[in-house]
Design a protein around this nucleic acid. Structure first.
Lengths: 219, 219
DNA sequence: TTTCGTAAAATCGTATACGATTATATGTTT
DNA sequence: AAACATATAATCGTATACGATTTTACGAAA
């Protein structure tokens, strides 16, 4: 049956809940890159034993958010600019595939949902929620592709760069430009213009990389 | 520091070893799709407790090889043909990126290694080892790209379809054709002809999908 | 026979405990 | 003071134990 976003998620076990909490903290930048993640500390914080904490860390390591070295512990994964660039390169390819496949199957349902999310983004001031809405918007456009694996991989990559975005990048000028691009992308999708949509997406995902490179150049 | 194939892997813990063993068994088809993976059984088999077994299962779930439902256990992940198709679509995109980035940095070292692997494939009769060598060949060509995340993701995808390949697909005709394509790809790479290399790769990765679709049509 | 309910068995989930490994502190020698 | 050795503390890794959940077996009722 595979993955699939619509899968019935029964109840989560403790490890899943811990992983969710740690993932949020990392993506939001509350846990900084390189910071050590001590099993006992985390276990105490969540009032659980180390067993589910270890499982959560293994999960997050697989997602690229945590680095683990046997017997030496876990840390919040660090990202070099080269890796950020790699991630955006992968994202452009993956999300282009998703768009190409999804656009012919896009229905008013997704369009309306996307528009609703864009309005929420307009009024959102909390950057953490902004990042969540940002991904929710993109995923809405990709979902009709039914390429759930691709979407999951891309979401992980998005989580990995979200920290960079939130810490180094977001100013009002960018946020407005980002929204303009979101709206243009949605227009392209509504028109069924796949090539235009992909071009807009490439532009949209290229901007952050350009700015990161500039930041790097200054140091 | 990130992932990176060259990372110093200190000693592996028990969970890593169990994950390695289970991964091999799944990729080789010794554990069949849908088969349940009981923690106590696996723990007894490897003469360890359930704790590292659970961590191994979480790891393999993240790789897409295992499905887990809380309180109900783990099974070897099943793959629909639609998912196999999705995986090959992603692989073509990812490996094209890797080739494009790698070819300008390809050195005689990788060329010689790739040729050596191809000779080994010629003489390999064990299909399990054939699959390993097959990936080793591809990875050799991608490594100069230094896109270690992309390579890791792609390797996982390869592992996911290897079962299909090994069970439904491999006959002498295909193996010979596959090797012809491998050698053509290597020539394209040596020539520095990126577009030709990508075209060969697309053809190489398209063949299995076509055959799978044919199998599906019969059922 | 089928359906339902209940009891028993199997299996999962995790807290506790303790040995193993690594990191840190302290003192000694050069 | 710097380098090394040793002792101590901190942390990781996992076996054991036991409660919780799910599955299975079995008998009663429809």
């Amino acid at each position: 049956m595979g993955l699939g976003i619509g899968d019935i998620q029964t109840t989560k076990n403790t490890a899943n809940l811990v992983a969710d909490a740690l993932r949020s903290a990392i993506v939001q930048g509350k846990l900084l890159s390189g910071q050590s993640l001590k099993q006992d500390e985390i276990a105490a914080e969540f009032k659980v034993s180390k067993i589910p904490v270890r499982e959560a860390l293994v999960q997050l390591q697989a997602e690229g958010l945590v680095s683990m070295i046997p017997s030496r512990g876990a840390t919040v994964a660090e990202l070099t600019l080269i890796e950020v660039d790699e991630i955006y390169t992968i994202r452009v390819a993956m999300e282009s595939i998703a768009l190409r496949k999804a656009i012919p199957f896009l229905t008013p349902k997704e369009v309306i949902e996307a528009e609703r999310i864009l309005e929420n983004i307009d009024h959102e001031t909390d950057m953490t929620k902004w990042a969540e809405l940002n991904w929710a918007y993109h995923e809405t456009l990709y979902r009709p592709s039914k390429m759930y694996r691709l979407i999951q991989i891309t979401k992980n990559l998005h989580n990995n760069v979200a920290r960079y975005l939130l810490n180094n990048y977001l100013d009002k000028t960018y946020l407005e430009e980002s929204q303009r691009q979101h709206r243009q992308l949605l227009e392209n999708c509504k028109d069924g213009d796949i090539n235009a949509a992909i071009a807009t997406l490439e532009h949209h995902l290229g901007d952050p990389v350009a700015i990161f490179a500039e930041i790097l150049g200054k140091n």
